[in-house]
């Protein structure tokens, strides 16, 4: 669905705007944020080491080479999923906050098991990443339900600020009626839209190289992530990439005959 790609892009984007940011991989056993952010060979200690007191937080945090204010906390490759404890996670988050981190992005694993629960439990804001596909939309609704009942905020009678990020969006297919449109998904999930990331080759190219796609300021996907970051930071930015670009006459003719 693009959770890790999104975590990499959004954390990079927030850091590039001058905020001290940490991004934590919660996918214990299937670490992948490190390879998306091109620091896989710099991992020495990980999240579980810090929780178990085998390493200091400072030793485990990896400074990003592209964005000045960005630090990555990789997941461990242990198969023991219960290595994450509520107390342990809370301690690490608190230490990060005390250390001056303004934004902490928790990259959730897929599913609704322990790792995902840990990633969302302490959230103030949740970005639900979905594709315009039935299975993904249905799962998103379940995750929204869990956020509304099982998160710490919910337990305290408050609400996690939820928003929807629709990735791999193809306006042309939507127009042809082959793909759920953004309005449809918004209506089904009844959740505020953070942004639409158009389906784009640049996303794969970016992950091939380990450069978060937001650094590609030319590509629509990169621009769409930048817009989403601006919205997270409270700016009003109009939504883009939701409709088919008007093509020139020659392009159209060429397309028809092709």
């Amino acid at each position: 669905m693009g959770k890790t790609t999104t975590s990499a892009a959004i954390s990079s984007g927030i850091a590039m705007r001058g905020h001290k940011t940490a991004v934590i991989d919660f996918d214990i056993g299937l670490r992948n944020l490190d390879i998306i952010m091109n620091c896989e060979r710099r991992v020495v200690y990980d999240f579980v080491n810090v929780i178990n007191g085998e390493a200091k937080l400072r030793q485990a945090l990896i400074k990003d080479k592209r964005a000045e204010n960005l630090y990555i906390l990789p997941a461990s490759q242990t198969r023991d999923k219960d290595a994450l404890t509520i107390d342990g996670v809370e301690r690490v988050l608190k230490e990060l906050a005390d250390d001056g981190f303004e934004y902490i992005i928790c990259d959730s694993p897929a599913g609704i098991e322990h790792g995902a629960f840990m990633a969302m439990y302490f959230a103030d804001m949740a970005i639900v990443v979905a594709n315009p596909e039935v299975s993904s939309v249905r799962d998103s609704d379940r995750i929204l339900g869990i956020l509304q009942s099982k998160s710490r905020r919910a337990e305290q009678g408050e609400r996690v600020e939820e928003c929807l990020l629709l990735t791999r969006y193809n306006p042309e297919r939507v127009e042809k009626g082959e793909m759920l449109g953004v309005k449809d998904v918004e209506e089904i999930l009844a959740t505020k839209l953070l942004g639409v990331i158009p389906e784009s080759e640049t996303v794969l190219k970016a992950s091939n190289q380990g450069i978060p796609v937001i650094h590609d300021t030319e590509s629509p996907a990169g621009q769409a992530y930048s817009d989403a970051v601006a919205r997270i930071l409270g700016e009003e930015v109009e939504h883009r990439f939701m409709s088919v670009e008007q093509k020139g006459l020659f392009q159209r003719l060429f397309r028809r005959s092709a």
Binding site: E133, V134, V137, R138, V174, G177, L180, D184, I188
Partner: peptide
């Protein structure tokens, strides 16, 4: 045209 609206309805 039908498939997206079928998806929406089912969802």
């Amino acid at each position: 045209k039908a498939t997206a609206s079928i998806a929406k309805e089912r969802l």
